[in-house]
Amino acid sequence: MNSTVIPIAPKAVVAKPGWTDSWFAVRKELTPRSRVALIVGSFLLPILIWCAFSYLPFVWHPMMRISDPGSVSYFAPDMLVDKDVFRDETKTAKQNGTALPQGSGANPIYLPAPHQVAKALYTAFTTAPERKDGQWLHESLWHSVQIIFWGFLASSVIGVPLGILCGTYNVLSRLTEPFIEFFRYLPAPAFGALAVAILGIYDGPKIAIIFIGTFFQQVLIVANTTRKLDIALLEAALTLGAKKIQLLFRVVIPGILPDLYRDQRILLGWAWTYLIVAELIGTSSGITWFITQQARYKNFENVYAAIIIIGIIGLVTDLLLAALGKWLFRWERSPNKA
C-alpha cells in the first residue's frame, strides 16, 4: 500500500500464565496433554491410596496375621486377629513364660491388596464354577448385560416416543406428566415383591425393575429435551409449509436427536445402578449372584474384581457410545466453538 515505515509497537509483556491459571480457567478447554494427565490421574489417585493402605503397614493394618500361634491355644496359622487381642495374648504369654505368638500386621479380610484383586480379575474368569450347574463369571456377566439390555430397551421403546410427544403436545404433557412425576418418586425396588408375584421368579421381575427405574425419569427428561428445541426452527418450518406430522418427524425429532442421544447415555448409566437390586429379586442371578456367592465364601478379592468389571463395562460402553455420537452428529457445532 504505502512504504512508510510503521513504527513497531513495543511488544506487550504478557504474563506467562501459571498452571493454576490455565487449569482453573472457567470452562476453558484444557490442552490435550493436561487432559490425558488428568484422566490418568483420576484413576491413579484412588489406586495409590489403596496401595498405601495395603502395602504400608503404618497407614492402617488394624489386624495381625498369625504366622506361629506359639502357646495361644485358639490361634492358628494364617488366622486374622485384632491387634488388641494379639497384644493381650502376647502379654499373658510373656508373664507365663510360654512361647510367644508370632504374626505381622494385616488389613481386614474385606480389604484385599491391589495385587490380589488383579490376580482375581484373571482367575475369576478361569476358575470353573463350584457346582456343576453354576455359571462361569463371563456367563454371569452376560446374563446381567442381557437384563440391562432388555429392561432399557423396553423402557426406551415406550419412554422415548412418549417423552417426545409430551414435549411437543401440551395436551399429552398435562395429561401424563403429573402422574409420572408422582410415580418417579417411588423407589423401584419397592415393586420387587409385586413384580415377582406377577412375573415369576426368573428374569421377568428383574427386567421389570430396570424398566420401572428408568422409564419414568426417561419420559420427563426426554420431554424436557424436546421442549428445549428452538421454537424459531418450528416457525421457520411452518412458513415453509410443513404440516403437523412433518413438523414432528422432519424438525422436532432430527432437531433433538443429539441431546436425546446424550440423555439416553445418562439414563443407561442409571439403569446399571438398578442392576444389583434387580438381580436380588426372585432367584439371585447374574453378576449379583456371583458377588453374593463370593462374599459368602469371603473371597473378597473376587467381589472387588466383579465390581471393577462392572465399572469397566459401564465406562467402555459409555466411551464407545460417546464416540459413536460424535460421528453421528457431525453437523453439531462443538459447544466450545460456539
Binding site: 424459531a232 421457520a236 415453509l240 422432519r250 424438525v251 452428529f329
Partner: peptide, 29 residues
C-alpha cells in the same frame, strides 16, 4: 403456509441439514 415465505432475524437454518437440504426442505414439504 408456503405462500408466505419468511426470513427471520435470528438464524433459523436447520443445523442437521446441509445447505442444499435446507433449501430443499420447503419443496419437499
Amino acid at each position: 403456509c408456503a405462500q408466505r415465505g419468511m426470513v427471520f432475524q435470528g438464524y433459523t437454518l436447520f443445523p442437521w441439514l446441509t445447505v442444499k437440504k435446507n433449501v430443499m426442505f420447503g419443496l419437499e414439504m
